[in-house]
Structures are given as structure tokens and as C-alpha cells.
Write a protein that binds this DNA or RNA. Sequence first.
DNA 1: AGAAAGATGAAAAAATCTTCTCAGTTTGGT
DNA 2: ACCAAACTGAGAAGATTTTTTCATCTTTCT
Lengths: 122, 122
Amino acid sequence: MERRTKQRQAIRSVFLETQRPLSPQEVLELARARVPGLGLATVYRTLKGLLEEGFLVPVELPGGTPRYERSGEAHHHHFLCRVCGKVYELQGCPQGVEALVPPGFLAEGHEVTLYGRCSACA
Amino acid sequence: MERRTKQRQAIRSVFLETQRPLSPQEVLELARARVPGLGLATVYRTLKGLLEEGFLVPVELPGGTPRYERSGEAHHHHFLCRVCGKVYELQGCPQGVEALVPPGFLAEGHEVTLYGRCSACA
DNA sequence: AGAAAGATGAAAAAATCTTCTCAGTTTGGT
DNA sequence: ACCAAACTGAGAAGATTTTTTCATCTTTCT
């Protein structure tokens, strides 16, 4: 992760300009608009580098597909559209999440995921 | 899913006696205590049948591993131990989860997942 | 501009997880 | 007890997703 190539710039740009978590496949499709011919291997290699460098963090969501988003964002949660499969970011956090922790258990974090139809698919 | 075999009884019993969602691998290990030599293919076949029959429902959780739990339980959420990997059931539901839904989006359900250490691993 | 190290794309290989195949076993009905 | 249908275990085969390999380009430094 040392050189500045158009592939890496394109992938980084995709995350800077897209306000939702992306899967490797989505990254490939979005970045190909800037770098035609971009390979999936490069996407995986670059994602790995951006994770190590701390630019990205993995998003913990149900459903096999791993997704990544920019690190450093405010605490937030996600909405998964069951029609188009896209994940959106939600603002805010419900009250009393930590109150669900049973005695003796130690909670280190939580994720809230809403399911349904996004505005485009409703 | 018609005959009553000891394999199927064992797998069903495992779910009746275990108060947490189980992955196919966990089912295999727990059921082998009753039926030594139980095969993974039988676990998958039986899980499929129990899902179709409505005895089980899939649990939507982050992390590739699919898990299943008995259907018909009251609305609840889950705790995933990062040490041992087990998933536990939590009682209750935070206030205001549905309030996070953006205008134009249609929420059909939600999942709250807490992460941390279970009482055995804390 | 030239050279060396690094990066890329395509395809092969790996790593997983789930389903299928099939010979042998078990179940349920008679 | 007998039989046909259903089920099982083991391994092969599939289906996916991610990583590796390698010959060929690019970037960066001099």
C-alpha cells in the first residue's frame, strides 16, 4: 500500500463519495466507472490495505456479504433493504440497548439493523 | 421429513433443550452426544426439514455462520460472545427502534445484537 | 529517460460451506 | 418377519468468496 495508483484512488474515492457501506462487489462496480477493466483481485487487495491503514472498518451485518465503511463516523446503525440489498446508514441509537445485557455478561458494543424497503423500493 | 429416526429426534431435542441459537456445526456436536456417528449431511437435511415444517427459524446475525432457533418465541434479541462464539438470547427490546427509520423507508423488522463476553468468558 | 520495486488483471488455486450421490441401513405398514 | 420406501453416513461435487500466482504494466527515484 505504498504507491498512488489510479485504481487505489478510485476505490478510495468511491468510499468518500458513497454514504453507505459497500461490499467488495459493489466497490468493483462503482470503481469501474472510473477505472474500466479494474479487477476484483485489486479490489480485495486494496480493501485489505485500507482496512489495515484504518481508513475503512468492517460493518457487522446479518447476511453473508461483508461490507465496509469509512472509519471515524459517529455512532450509527443500518437499514438493509430486502429488495435491492443496499445498506443505508441511520442516525441515532435507541435508548436502553445496554440495559438488555444479562448480569455477568460484559457488553463491548452493539449493532442495530432495521430491515424493510428503502425509499426507492417502497 | 416423514419418518421418525433417532437422528431427527436427537436434533429436535437439541433445540428443545438448548436455549440459544445454534449453527449447523453446533447442532452436529450436540446431537452426536446422543447419536454417535451422526453425519453433517443429515444435520443439514434435518435443519432444512425443520425449517420447512416451521419448527425452526433462521436467526439474522452478523458473522457468516447461519444459526437457527425454535420458532414461536417472544420477540427478543441476541448477545454474541466474541470469545467463545456462542449466541445467547436476550429478553426485551430497546425503546424507539422504529424511530430510526428515515422518511420514505418502510421498516418490516429489526435485529439488535450485543457483542462482548458472556458470563463464562468474562 | 532508465531502472527497480511495486501494482495490476486474469486465471488458477484455496478455503468454506452446502448439497448431491449412492450403497447400505432403518422404519413403518402388512 | 418381510418389503418397499425413506433415511443415513461418507465422500464427491457444487457453489461462493477470497487469495495467490505470474507475466506484464506503472510508478517513483535518480
